[in-house]
Design a protein around this nucleic acid. Structure first.
Lengths: 352, 352
DNA sequence: GGGGCGATTGATATCGTTACCAATCGGCGG
DNA sequence: CCGCCGATTGGTAACGATATCAATCGCCCC
């Protein structure tokens, strides 16, 4: 005989089924099924025999087969996020999973990478896997939401997180982008600044659009004109944000304050200012008033004085999941899409 | 008639099945099945009729039912992570998903929250859902790995990420914790420091243990004694790390340098030092030499001079997924668990 | 002591899909 | 003009699990 190690049983070419357990335990498949779903009316002695046989074989119920039965639910929730590597969405995912776990649901996750086509494929795949609901951060480039409307029409509940879609009436959890951006900008203007820069994402991104609107509204209310040369939208990562900030700094007449509309842009801006200081071998950074949307782990340790508009990503995830599960658990479908706006609080700048 | 909006079809109490499509198209279920899996030998005209019927009904293949057929694979990979809210693991998850997507696999994800019991339940659930493989960041408290051994014995490939398990011979991707910690500590000692603090996680966490070992090794090689009062292990979050650093600073004879063994502890340490500076209303932070394991987004913008031992979380995820998929795609099971150690590079401190 | 009730167990059919085999048809070579 | 072949289509039986109904058994009460 060869030296192939094979101490216990065969290497399980095929995972054991309920039928295998039944044969080993000398009972019918139905009895095994009963043992694994509540032990209704099975003699303790038989239960013991079945469990022992199952343990010997390493049997596990096939959840996919179970979910085939009528009325059974898959216990899965599909989540598509634009980019999980962004700590904000990671935190949101955590919130989603907390609530999902409380309701015994698992999550299937996919990154859309801001690509509508990819998002659409993810959604289709998730639906094919019988998810009970979808939580979607709609990709910025999503010109149409056909794939989501199809799902909704098919009876699969959807919750949108962070971004709304005008043409899709489903539960949505947003941050008060406009209010937060307004408050931040208003604060800057109240301090006397009149040339305020804006760094944000492209207008096709819902949150970017709204935060720019808050920025504009605040100017309008105070009757201060915006120099459009100071409005740079289109940075989606830290690197491009840093470059954009550098461009602002190098203007002949640079802004005295800048509102950055998300954490990528805030970090890029800080980086540009701090690296500028190091290049100048100066002890003090440029005096630029900086307020950023989104809090992040290092916000209060920034080397550059900074205020942030803070909001709670985990809570956003929790609320989206909660609303979704209400739908899954039978909320009257006639109830129109509910929209929650979570507060965005302007945090005071820490003593420098 | 009432005003209930119900323009198209019924609200799909039950999602349409292949059989429904077949009836509408006036063909047999088999023909529909063929149309959706390669169109082998179905007349174009019939194909068109079937596709049209499917579109009308909003039909989607039930992937769970398909995966019931013998030989079919689920296309799912189960991933358990200790805490996705840690940006390091979020980045890792991204790497895993990139590779999984390249191989047309989706991921089922769950947070174990460093709880072995929870991890075990997640794994059991994933196996029940017929995942083709598992990627696990073993929870620190996992005294035993029975649940994983069962899975492995059942023929489901496993890859461990970030942390190894002594008693489980499976593919594993690690960071060169010992080498990285050694290099960092050696650098500190070479600079002349003799009282070096250590902040890290509890010894039950694999990486924490290894990084402490590198720290000790470096001292041993240089024949420098470690003051055990300066070794604080057990901080798992930023808050407790900050408190631990404060404790070090308040010692009668505080360390002149500190090695922080992960990003939570590094950030906590920076926070303690910076907040101390602010309390003292001083322009300069305490002169403490700081080197931390793990890079993070803000590492080079730290208000406190800092070096880091950098490694690539996304690559770690990619490698784990790649090895797992090799197993799934039929790598000889006789091949013993492969262990990869990714490099951890000591990055120079940026000019302050 | 008989009828009946509850507890226990098993046989059957089905969930949605597809591999396999059989049936049908048109057309072409001999 | 017959028979064979390929193309096309359908019937059947499973995949693993369970709801439903039927069957069996022991035991209690009148």
């Amino acid at each position: 005989m060869s030296a192939t190690p094979d101490p216990v049983a065969s290497p399980a070419a095929r995972p054991p089924t309920l039928r295998d357990v039944a044969i080993l335990a000398g009972v019918s498949p139905m009895t095994v099924s009963r043992v694994f779903s509540g032990n209704l009316n099975v003699r303790p002695e038989v239960q013991e025999r079945v469990r022992s046989a199952a343990a010997t074989l390493g049997y596990r119920r096939n959840e996919n087969a179970r979910s085939l039965r009528p009325g059974h639910r898959s216990g899965l929730i599909g989540v598509t996020i634009t980019n999980i590597a962004n700590p904000y969405y990671a935190e949101m995912q955590r919130g989603i999973e907390e609530v999902a776990a409380e309701h015994s649901r698992r999550i299937l996750i996919g990154n859309s990478n801001e690509d509508a086509e990819l998002e659409s494929r993810l959604v289709a795949d998730f639906l094919g896997r019988q998810v009970e609901g979808l939580i979607v951060v709609p990709s910025g480039s999503a010109a149409d939401s056909t794939h989501l409307r199809d799902a909704a029409q098919g009876g699969v509940p959807i919750a949108l997180a962070s971004r709304a879609l005008d043409d899709l009436d489903v539960d949505t959890v947003l941050v008060d982008d406009i209010g937060g951006a307004f408050a931040a900008t208003d604060r800057i203007l109240a301090e006397g600044h009149t040339r305020v820069g804006f760094l944000g994402t492209q207008a096709s991104v819902f949150t970017g659009r709204r935060r720019l609107q808050g920025f504009r509204d605040a100017h309008a209310v105070r009757g201060i004109a915006i120099d459009e040369d100071l409005v740079l939208a289109g940075q989606r990562d830290v690197q491009s944000a840093e470059a954009a900030m550098q461009a602002l700094l190098q203007l002949a007449d640079p802004p005295t304050a800048v509102f950055t509309a998300n954490n990528r842009n805030t970090i890029g801006a800080i980086r540009a200012i701090e690296l500028d200081r190091r290049r100048r071998r100066s002890a003090a950074p440029l005096r630029i008033r900086l307020i950023g949307f989104d809090s992040f782990e290092f916000a209060d340790l920034s080397p550059v004085p900074l205020s942030v508009v803070a909001h709670d990503a985990r809570e956003l995830g929790r609320r989206a999941a909660t609303m979704l599960l209400e739908r899954i658990d039978g909320l009257d479908p006639a109830v129109a899409g509910r929209v929650i706006e979570l507060p965005a609080r302007l945090q005071e700048v820490p003593a420098p």
